[in-house]
Amino acid sequence: MIQSVFRTAVARYKTVREQMRQHSYRYKNEEDKWVQVPRDLTWLVKPIQFRQPQADLVRQSNYAFVDKMQQISMTTLGKRTKLGFTNKGFEKYFADGWKLGTAKLVHTRGKWFLHIGITKEVSDFDTKDNPQIVGIDRGLRFLATVFDSKGKTLFFNGQKILHRRKKFLEIRRQLQSKGTRSAKKKLKQLAQRENRWMTDVNHRLAKTLVALYGSHTLFVLEDLTNV
């Protein structure tokens, strides 16, 4: 568990470092020209903080399903503990050849959730089956650009999405500038609302693509520059 703390902290710093590398500091110089300055971890004002209790658990070593999958046995700071759990809606992932990997135990909104990475080996793609191949590129100006094997291109305009995200950003900045307890509470509610909205947008986009191209389609995420 101590080793997982190191891994989690290092992974978070790597993520932040990449984010800072992608977003340079911009300012206007005396000649009124924009100047970009690369950023790295030295720009952090204070160390990264983990406010949400969480732990990484290695399969069989830190957690295991016991009593015919009725309980989960987990390592805690005190002792090995057996707990009941609910897997409603996820039963198929505990069978049918799925392999369970490292899990992350997270405490949020008064409940504990166990996020488990799973993998499954599948047969190689058979080109003889002749599915329709559709390439998808995600972006901001266009929520999605789609190019199919027939040479047809579709664009899903993302301007309305971008406009609403800017509104969320403006509200977030206003609340952050206040720094009061009620402002922090509203910030949390705003983040949850934005996540639900974006999840719904992605879900509707996915349903639209499946309905448009049918089930016998291979969707591929790719870079469609200058399509």
Rank of each mutant, 00 (worst) to 15 (best):
K92L: 06
F65C: 03
K178Q: 13
F85L: 02
G97E: 05
N87Q: 14
E194A: 02
T86I: 09
L162Y: 06
W34N: 03
D32Y: 02
T153E: 06
S61F: 03
F85A: 06
W34Q: 10
Q52D: 05
I116H: 07
L57V: 08
Y25T: 11
T15N: 03
T225W: 15
F6G: 08
L83C: 05
G84P: 01
G139S: 01
K28G: 06
K111D: 08
N157D: 14
S73H: 06
L143I: 02
A9L: 12
Q176W: 08
F168W: 10
N87H: 12
K79I: 04
M74I: 15
G135E: 08
I48P: 00
Y93I: 01
A191N: 11
D96R: 04
P131K: 11
S177P: 00
T86M: 09
L187R: 00
E121F: 03
D32F: 04
E18K: 13
Q70A: 04
T76Q: 05
K111R: 12
L187N: 00
F147P: 00
S149R: 01
G89Y: 12
I2F: 10
R7W: 06
F142P: 00
K152A: 05
H107W: 07
D126M: 07
L212M: 14
L140G: 07
D96H: 12
A55I: 03
L44F: 01
K128H: 08
K128S: 09
L212G: 07
K99D: 11
T225E: 15
T208Y: 11
N195A: 15
Q192N: 14
L41S: 02
D67F: 05
R165D: 10
S149K: 07
S24F: 09
D137R: 01
W43P: 00
I136R: 01
N202K: 06
V122H: 03
M198E: 08
Q19K: 15
Q22R: 05
W43Q: 07
T127H: 07
V146P: 00
D129P: 00
V66I: 15
R51F: 10
D148T: 03
V10Y: 12
A103S: 08
S215Q: 10
E31Q: 15
K104D: 01
K111I: 06
K82C: 14
